[in-house]
């Protein structure tokens, strides 16, 4: 038993040394300590908005018509270049123009899935917070965004 404990200690130590050495020369190395609270996901969590990855967004996209509406928070140019079929354009900068449409959607009780470009952009989060303030309860943030949707073969229309 004592030998085993010693060997466990050696394995734990070696793993730590290898992790330290490899991360220092890794082409995609990460900092040992970083703040996660600035991330869009963390901020969504703080705001009480549910966050979903691509796998779940794809499932929701297959939902019966009228059950889920995707809302695109990117710029009109980005939306015109390609978007999720059936998505409603609602760039955060011109949100006021969309108030009547969004209000109707909220009243319909449909699930609203908000997205923007990628995990780093926070326009979708801002939009989600606004929708929440307007009374949306069935609200989800698709955090991976349009870039990942397109990359992994999600349906796209120009």
């Amino acid at each position: 038993m004592r030998t085993t404990l010693k060997q466990i200690g050696i394995i734990l130590l070696v793993s730590g040394v290898v992790a330290l050495a490899v991360n220092s020369i890794h082409p995609r190395k990460i900092p040992w300590v970083q703040s996660w609270s600035d991330h869009v996901e963390a901020r969504s969590r703080q705001a009480g908005i549910k966050v979903i990855p691509l796998s779940v967004a794809l499932q929701k996209f297959q939902s019966p018509e009228g059950a889920v509406t995707f809302i695109d928070a990117r710029s009109p140019e980005e939306f015109a270049a390609g978007h999720i079929p059936g998505a409603l354009p609602a760039p955060f900068q011109t949100l006021e123009e969309q108030f009547p449409t969004l209000g109707n959607l909220i009243d319909s009780g449909q699930e609203l899935v908000v997205y923007c470009k990628n995990r780093e952009c926070d326009d979708s989060l801002m939009l989600a917070i606004e929708l929440q303030a307007m009374g949306a309860e069935n609200l989800t943030l698709f955090v991976d965004g349009f870039e990942v949707w397109q990359k992994y073969g999600g349906a796209v229309v120009p």
Binding site: I11, L12, S15, G16, V18, A19, V22, N23, I30, P31, W32, V33, Q34, S35, W36, S37
Partner: peptide, 14 residues
């Protein structure tokens, strides 16, 4: 927060 990267880097190598 401060333990997330440390744990992920350590466990993957362990």
């Amino acid at each position: 927060d401060f333990l997330v990267n440390i744990a992920s880097l350590y466990f993957q190598w362990l």
